[in-house]
Design a protein around this nucleic acid. Sequence first.
DNA 1: TATCAAATTTCTAATCATTACAATTTTATA
DNA 2: TATAAAATTGTAATGATTAGAAATTTGATA
Lengths: 141, 141
Amino acid sequence: MKSDFNAYNYLLQHDIKPSVQRLAIINYLYEHRTHPTADEIYAGLIDQIPTLSKTTVYNTLNLFHQQAAILALTIDDKNVRFDIDTSDHAHFKCLNCAKVFDVPAVLDSVTSVALEHGFVVTEKHLYLKGYCSSCNESPNK
Amino acid sequence: MKSDFNAYNYLLQHDIKPSVQRLAIINYLYEHRTHPTADEIYAGLIDQIPTLSKTTVYNTLNLFHQQAAILALTIDDKNVRFDIDTSDHAHFKCLNCAKVFDVPAVLDSVTSVALEHGFVVTEKHLYLKGYCSSCNESPNK
DNA sequence: TATCAAATTTCTAATCATTACAATTTTATA
DNA sequence: TATAAAATTGTAATGATTAGAAATTTGATA
């Protein structure tokens, strides 16, 4: 079954000139909602594009983020993680299994407080940490 | 004028055995609400404690964080920043001047959604990014 | 279609925050 | 004081990310 995601148009909509590498990376993010790192994306695409360079992956992700086509998550203090879903939602990171989950959330109220301080808000990140339901039932520590 | 902050008791309250280095670091955080990095804390204390090691600063901050005596902020993708204020509040990072500001916020509503998913939440971080009032008036880019 | 400049990709090496690890020093206690 | 445990320190290693230069591809134009 084919994906109904039009990667080509998605890039154009964000003023990004499509290329083989860029299409592959945005498609990877569309298909993998695990908030992958640059390294994971590289590893996932190297078979499909044997000439792919890790620098290209980093450059491309930075470009996508600049153009607001993706989110760059700093929930992990080691790696930046990426998310194609730019709609309002929060993230939960399990301190045991290290997985990052999506959590529904509305962040409007907080933004309004920032506006009162004269801040112009371009990004909102809500990160929760703790233990997911699996790890909570059988903790491994 | 002397600070009314009792660093010694503060550490004891968090089950941390006081030492010269630990007291200096927690006092530094009490007095500097700029969300400093480990390196900034080290630079701020090296004159006062010439034998201080950067490893000790990292070890100590990790210990404080583990004991929930401070927050470890990953709002910056380069460095971890630290905050002695563990009460409910958000952070705003200016993408121009890189300063991190405190913003009042209540995060209860989001936590409750996470609980419904069976998550145990131990940390909440709300990070806003954009341009502060100074940089917004005279952008430097 | 050939040419040329700009954009993109790639490779290699550098950077730099953080941690690992072993040695030294300090602390607490018998 | 002797001794073990805890804390601190110094050095080297790790590893994600970026810098910078070279190679390749793309797109426009003649």
